[in-house]
Design a protein around this nucleic acid. Structure first.
Lengths: 330, 330
DNA sequence: CTGAAAGCGCTTACAG
DNA sequence: CTGAAAGCGCTTACAG
C-alpha cells in the first residue's frame, strides 16, 4: 500500500515499465487495448507515480516556487488564494518560501533553485531596487521563468502582474481635491514596499499638479503604534482627508479622529487603497480603491504556466483594472 | 551556472562524488583537510545539491505537506506563519495543498502522498467525522507521520495541537452569565468546522448548567449576508449578550446592534473567540478569547519534526493555553 | 505499438 | 578516510 511502483503495475499488467510510463504521459502512443488494461491495473492498485522520481527523470518537477516576505499579511494570503486555485487547475504543485528580513538574499534564492522548481512566482515586495536586481539576475541565470506578483519593478522587462497603483492613487487623490478637500494626507508605511512607493508617487503627482505640498505621514501597521501617531497628528495638524495605503491604517485613523470629535466624512474623508474585509466592518464603512488581489494571484500563476510550458505570451506586463468602491467614509 | 552538480564539485576538488556527498551529509566521516578543500570548491561554485535527486536517493524529501481547506481565511494564514518559521528553522521545505469542498478526498490525499512528503500537517477543519476517519487511515497506510493543526478529531490518538475550545467557550459563557447576562446567544457558522463544533459544545454546556436553553444563531462569514440575518434577529429577539465563533461576525453584529440603537456593552455584551486584528479596529474594541493561532502552527510543525526524525514524543495531543483579552465590548 | 537500456543527480552500504 | 558501484523510481531516445 505504502509504495506501489511502476514495476508493480507493469508486472500486474504484463507489460514493460516503459509502456506504463507511456500510458501516463503519452497515452496516444499506446494501443487502446493495452492502455485500457494498464489503466485498470493502475486504478486497482491506486498507483500514483512518485513525483520525485518523475521529476528527476524528466527534469521537470511540475512545481512552482512561491517566494514571499510574510504570509500573515492579509494581501499575501489572498494572492495565495488565487495562485493555489490556478496552480491546481494546471496540475502544478507549490512550494512556499519565505524571505526573512535580514536574511542572505542570494542564499535564499539558491535554496529555491536547489528545490528544482519549474517556475517562480515572486511576491516579496519588501526589497530595495538593487536587491530586486540581484534576485532577478540570479533567477535568470538559473534559467527559471519568473513572474512578479503584485511587486513593482520597472528596470527590466520582467513579466509581472499587478495594477497601476500610481494611477489609481493619483485619481483618487485628484477626486478628493476636486471634491473640495484641501489638506489631503497620505498615510504610508515606514517600511517601503515597492507597491506603496507607487502609491506615494501617484499621490504626490496629484498634489503637485494642484500646486500643493505633499503631506505624507509614515506609520506602522501595528494598531497600538499607529494610534499613538494619529492621536499626536490629530492634535497638531490641519486635515480634511486621509488616504491610506492600507485599509487597517485608514480605519485606525478614522477611529482616532472620531474619538477626537471629528465627523467622518463631514470633517474628514477617509479612503483605503486595498478593499479588504476590514472595509465593511468599520463604522462608517470605508470607501476604497479596490485592488483585485485574488485575481492578481490567479493571473500571475496563469502567466507563469505559459512560460513554463513555452506557450506564446503576448503581454508580459499585465495591469489589472481597479475601481473605486464608494462607501460611507468620504 | 544553471546546474553545477556533485560531479563538478568532485572534479574540481579531485575527490570522488561519494566524498562530496559525505562532506554534505556526514562531515565527521571525512578528513578535515579534504573536507576543507571540498567545502572551498562548493562555496566557489555556489553548489547546492539537487533536492529532487537527493530526495530520490535518500527516500526522504525533507518536505512537509500542508493540507488546508482555504488559505484566504485569516486563521489559516496565521497558522501558516507559525508553520513556515519553524519549518525553515528545521530545514524542511513546504508543499501546500488545498482541498476544495466537493473534491474527491481520497484522490486529494493520494496526490499529497505521491508528492513524497515526509510528513503532513493537516489544517483542514471542514471535514465530517467519517471523512476525517478515512483521511487519517489513508495517511497512516502510507506510513506518513501526520499532525492535526487546529483541527479537532477525538476518535483516534492522532497527534494534534490546538486549544481547548470547548473549555474556553464554556468559561467565557459562564463569565457572561455570572455577570448577570440572561439571553446569551452564540453566533456560529453554517458550515461546520470541527473547531466550531467544540465551541458550540462548551457554550451549550454552560447554558445547560444554568438551566438555560442554548440560543444559537447560524450565519455566514460574509458581511453582506450576516448583516441581513442580524437585522432580522435584532428586530425579533431578546438578547443581552452575543459570543461569536469569529471576530468578524461579532463585529458585524455589533455594528448592526449599534445602528439599531443598542449600546455596547451596556445593552449587549459582545465577545469574539479568536482575537484577530479586527478586534482592535472595531468601535468599541472587541473583547476576545485569544487563541494563539501562530503558536498552534509553530508547535504543530515542531511536533511533526519530532515524528519525522524519530525523536521521542512525550505528549502527542497538545492543548495550548488561551486567555481572555478584556476590551470594551463587554 | 512495445521493450531493453541508459540516465536523471544524488546516497549509501561495501570494500579497501 | 576514500572510492567504485548499485540503486532510488521514473522518462525517453533507440531499436525492432
Amino acid at each position: 500500500m505504502a509504495n506501489t511502483t511502476i514495476y508493480d503495475v507493469a508486472g500486474a499488467a504484463k507489460v514493460s515499465l516503459a509502456t506504463v510510463s507511456r500510458v501516463m504521459n503519452n497515452p496516444e502512443k499506446v494501443n487502446p487495448e493495452t492502455r485500457a488494461r494498464v489503466l485498470k491495473v493502475i486504478k486497482e492498485l491506486g498507483y500514483r507515480p512518485n513525483a520525485i522520481a518523475r521529476g528527476l527523470a524528466s527534469r521537470k518537477s511540475t512545481t512552482v516556487g512561491i517566494v514571499m516576505a510574510d504570509v500573515s499579511r492579509a494581501a499575501t494570503a489572498q494572492l495565495l488564494g488565487g495562485i493555489i486555485d490556478i496552480a491546481k487547475k494546471y496540475d502544478y504543485a507549490m512550494k512556499v518560501f519565505s524571505m526573512a528580513e535580514h536574511e542572505d538574499i542570494k542564499e535564499a534564492i539558491r535554496t529555491v533553485v536547489a528545490e528544482q522548481v519549474d517556475g517562480i512566482l515572486f511576491l516579496n515586495d519588501e526589497l530595495e531596487s538593487e536587491q530586486m536586481h540581484s534576485v532577478i539576475n540570479q533567477i535568470q541565470d538559473a534559467q527559471i521563468p519568473v513572474v512578479l506578483c503584485n511587486v513593482i519593478y520597472d528596470d527590466l522587462d520582467v513579466p509581472s502582474v499587478s495594477i497601476d497603483y500610481e494611477k489609481a492613487t493619483y485619481e483618487i487623490t485628484k477626486e478628493l481635491l476636486e471634491a473640495g478637500r484641501k489638506d489631503v494626507y497620505l498615510a504610508s508605511t515606514v517600511r517601503k514596499y515597492t507597491v506603496n512607493l507607487h502609491k506615494v508617487n501617484g499621490y504626490v503627482k496629484a498634489m503637485e499638479e494642484k500646486g500643493l505640498e505633499p503631506l505624507i505621514i509614515r506609520t506602522s501597521g501595528d494598531v497600538a503604534v499607529n494610534t499613538l501617531h494619529f492621536e499626536e497628528f490629530i492634535k497638531n495638524k490641519k486635515f480634511d482627508a486621509l488616504i491610506s495605503v492600507r485599509d487597517s491604517i485608514a480605519i485606525s485613523f478614522m477611529n482616532c479622529a472620531i474619538k477626537a470629535g471629528f465627523k467622518v466624512p463631514e470633517d474628514v474623508s477617509v479612503v483605503g487603497l486595498q478593499n479588504t474585509k476590514y472595509a465593511v466592518l468599520s463604522r462608517p464603512n470605508l470607501t476604497c480603491v479596490d485592488t483585485p488581489v485574488y485575481d492578481i494571484g490567479a493571473v500571475s500563476m496563469r502567466l507563469l504556466t505559459k512560460y513554463m510550458q513555452h506557450e506564446e505570451v503576448t503581454e508580459s506586463k499585465i495591469l489589472l483594472p481597479y475601481r473605486v468602491v464608494e462607501r460611507e467614509s468620504n
